[in-house]
């Protein structure tokens, strides 16, 4: 079931399928990026700007992915240069999967961005990161309920401790176009 999509003559693009990590500033995007990509990472200024973008590779279930870590993004209608760069990546780099990282404890505030991504027909996966902090604050989450209501996969992680990253990889491989 997970192999037979390339048969209909649709060639893979010049590179591997792209996973774009996006979300508000300070939600642990870069930590998850590092967890996914490991060592070989390039950091460069986005063309024409002073904003830095990290790109790396990940091998998940024998498939190679390009992973991009974008600057912080609050909404798809940007105000800052960093946000504009993040949106440009979403717009023009043809993501096979957009991984929206949100903070588990404050996910309600960040959910509008998830909704925006879904409404834009982008293939989206929601990560609720820092699940441990949410637990500490006494917030318990029903991820199944979220998945059902959003209609996209939802994964809980603790990026700093690597918890849930294995499962996240599996869901990325399942859901990337």
């Amino acid at each position: 079931m997970r192999c037979c999509h390339n048969g209909d003559g649709k060639k893979e693009g010049p590179g591997s399928p792209r996973v774009v990590i996006t979300g508000w500033p300070n939600v642990g995007k870069s930590v998850l990026f590092n967890q996914l990509t490991g060592r070989y990472v390039t950091v460069s200024n986005y063309p024409g700007t002073t904003v830095e973008v990290s790109r790396g590779h990940a091998l998940i279930e024998d498939r190679a992915f390009e992973v991009i870590d974008t600057p912080g993004l609050y909404t798809l209608l940007p105000v800052s240069e960093e946000e504009r760069v993040a949106r440009r990546i979403l717009l023009y780099e043809k993501p096979s999967l957009v991984v929206h990282v949100a903070e588990a404890r404050n996910f309600e505030k960040m959910l509008p961005l998830t909704i925006q991504l879904i409404e834009s027909s982008l293939p989206t996966l929601l990560v609720l990161n820092m699940m441990d902090e949410a637990q500490k604050a006494g917030v318990r989450l029903d991820l199944g309920h979220l998945e059902k209501n959003l209609g996209v996969p939802v994964v809980g992680t603790v990026g700093t401790k690597g918890r849930g990253v294995g499962f996240l990889k599996k869901r990325i491989a399942e859901n990337a176009l």
């Binding site: 309600e108 998830t114 979220l146």
Partner: peptide, 13 residues
């Protein structure tokens, strides 16, 4: 919309 979805998903103390 986010508030409605979140309300169903959170079982808070």
């Amino acid at each position: 919309q986010a508030a409605r979805i979140a309300a169903g998903a959170v079982l808070p103390n």
